[in-house]
Design a protein around this nucleic acid. Structure first.
Lengths: 206, 206
DNA sequence: TGATTATAGTTAGGAATCCTATATAGTTTC
DNA sequence: GAAACTATATAGGATTCCTAACTATAATCA
């Protein structure tokens, strides 16, 4: 393994610890813990199945069920039956839950500042590298499929000549640039396996 | 805030969750939990004060004291008095603890593979960006001071003409390249504030 | 159709995290 | 030598998060 790989994993480790610690602080302000805060943010954007949330957070369904129950007890979330499948519970944020979620920072402020201080090209390169890493982890089944443009059936990389906005999303039927690539898009629909690989190759080698 | 900053923080969030989940798995194999595993790895490299470990992990001292007690109960760690300060306990790994730590993966295998697949230049750029981010967080007092070359009094960036090994460590009195930059060096000694800033400027603008 | 198997989620039970607050011991300051 | 500070430990408690077992629904297939 290369030395740089070691550097990078060490850095990720530090960032992961930092992230977790920041979450205790941030969520703590609202009387929540990190997991509750994370769940609340996600469901306030889009309702989700319980199992889906558990997979995203990397904890067991049972643990997540606990967390949802405690959010429910505080009136911040609700379980609703899914009309299409009687086994499924869709977890939704209540209005109060959305208000609380809106006050939670999306990312630690210090991290945002650090990123804003980077040069535009470095930041763009970093974003691109990280998208690639997440995609590789997703491919390796190490993390659940993420709602990223690069694995979405609506995504057409480099469909336009305009260098500033070369990509196209067929769902919203609009051109956009690298900076607008989504990692967690509400309108994501997973592309079929073969197609996803082809999309990625086009994106990556451009 | 730029869109790319949003992308990057989202990516870090996913990586942080992934890291934590991987740790449950990895440490679980040895009958440990993530925090115990993390502590054991650190003290098996170098003994540390209790408060120092707590700061590194971003948890309270009280929590860390619990964790150390449970490692102690399993015979994996020991508390020893510090000869220089009677209040301080140095936490050390026992021989058994070091054996267990040696079997814990330093990073999730899938992540290492993903990094190895990147091009050398991309990987080097990523490493450099992450070092910069960690340094910025450290500057902002968002994370405890890390044992990084770029904040070490022994580090002399670009002291040599050799492009492959331009830096110099005065502690080991040897030249080395970017790929060998340490993020968690055993021999780190924090540089005085003014000097550290100057070192970083030289490093960054080169 | 009806039995079997698989899936989604809940509940039970328990160990352990991680918190805040307080206590203790040692060190530094004045 | 008292007061203030620092490093750690302990107490008490809410909550996480686990595994295992259970219920309810859906899909499969003979």
């Amino acid at each position: 393994m290369s030395n740089e790989t070691r550097q990078i994993t060490t850095a990720f480790q530090k960032l992961a610890l930092f992230w977790r610690a920041s979450q205790w602080q941030a969520a703590g302000g609202a009387g929540l813990n990190p997991t509750q805060g994370e769940v609340l943010q996600r469901i306030s954007r889009r309702s989700a199945r319980l199992g889906e949330l558990a997979a995203m957070l990397g904890i067991s369904q049972a643990s997540l069920s606990d967390t949802v129950s405690s959010l429910e007890a505080r009136g911040l979330a609700e379980r609703r039956p899914d009309p299409e499948d009687g086994r499924v519970r869709r977890i939704e944020a209540t209005a109060a839950g959305r208000r609380v979620a809106a006050d939670l920072p999306q990312a630690p402020a210090a991290l945002e500042r650090a990123l804003e201080e980077m040069s535009d090209t470095d930041r763009a390169a970093l974003a691109r590298s990280l998208v690639g890493i997440i995609r590789a982890l997703q491919e390796a089944d190490a993390i659940p499929v993420q709602r990223m443009c690069v694995s979405c059936r609506h995504f057409r990389p480099f469909a336009h000549a305009d260098a500033a906005r070369p990509h196209h999303c067929e769902f919203v039927d609009a051109a956009f640039g690298d900076a607008s690539l989504r990692l967690d898009c509400d309108d994501h629909e997973a592309a079929p396996a073969g197609e996803a690989a082809a999309i990625w190759r086009r994106f990556e080698t451009a």
